[in-house]
Design a protein around this nucleic acid. Sequence first.
DNA 1: ATGTCGTGAAGGTCACGA
Length: 270
Amino acid sequence: MRLTIATWNINSVRLRAGLVTQFLADHGPDVLCLQETKCQDDHFPTAAFRKAGYEHIAVHGQKGYHGVAVVSRIPIEAREAHRYCDKDDARHIAVTLAGGGGAKGITLHNFYVPAGGDVPDPAVNVKFEHKLAFLDEMTRWGMRDKPAAGRSVLVGDLNIAPLENDVWSHKQMLDVVSHTPLECKLLGQVQEAAGWVDAVRTLRPEPERLYTWWSYRAQDWQKADRGRRLDHVWLSPGLSGSLAGTEIVRHARSWERPSDHVPVMITLDV
DNA sequence: ATGTCGTGAAGGTCACGA
C-alpha cells in the first residue's frame, strides 16, 4: 500500500482548523503530524477532523504554548509522550499505526524542538541552553532505545536548518539561531545516533535549496524568499528503501492567514 | 531591518514566545 505522512507546524490549530481540513481534502495524507497546536487537549478541534475522515487522533497539548498531535485515517494502536529536560511542555508524541496493510506496526515520533531564542550562546540565553540540552537528550534516547531499529519515522519542527542549502544564505546565517554550527552538529548527532535517513534530501539532494518556513516579518516572503528548512521527515534504515516521493507544499504559505511553516509530505510504498 | 504573528490576562493593550 501507499502510505502518505505529512508534518506541519500549524501555529495554533484552533485558529487554523479550516486550513488543516483544506489541506486534508486537497492533499489527502493518511497521517498528519502537527506542532505548535497551542491548545489544551480538551480544546483540540477533534470533531472537525473526524468529520473530514480522520477519526484517529492523538493529542499532547498544553495551554497557549507548544503542543503536538497526530491526526490519522489509519487506526492507532499505541500512544506515548516523552518528557524532555524535566519539563511538561508537550514537545513529543509517538503513535504506532495499526491499520491493515503494510502500515501496521510503523511507529511515528512527532517532535517540536525548542526554538532557542535569539542569542546563540548558552551562557547568556537559557532558551538556547534548553535547545542544546533537548538535542542531547534526543541523542541519548536514540542510543538507548534504538527508535530506528524497526520501521519508524521521526517528523517535526526541529527548528534547525542543518545544510548549507537549507537556508537562503549560509554565510549570513552562521550566527543565527537555527543554523549555527553547534546546533547543526548536535542535530547530526541525533540523526547518527539512531541511523535516521533524511527522506526529503534523499530525493532532492543538495545543492537544491529547500525551505519549509518563511518569517512573518518579511514584507513580501515570496519575493525575498529568505526561507529555512526547519521541518523534517526522517526514516529508519528499515523504511528508507520504501520511500516513493516527497513534497513541500510551498503554496500553503500563500493561504489566507497562513502558518509561517508549510506542510512537508512523504509517500512510502509499504 | 526589531519588521509580524498568536495566546492569555487583563481590561479596551500589553508581555511573552516564536
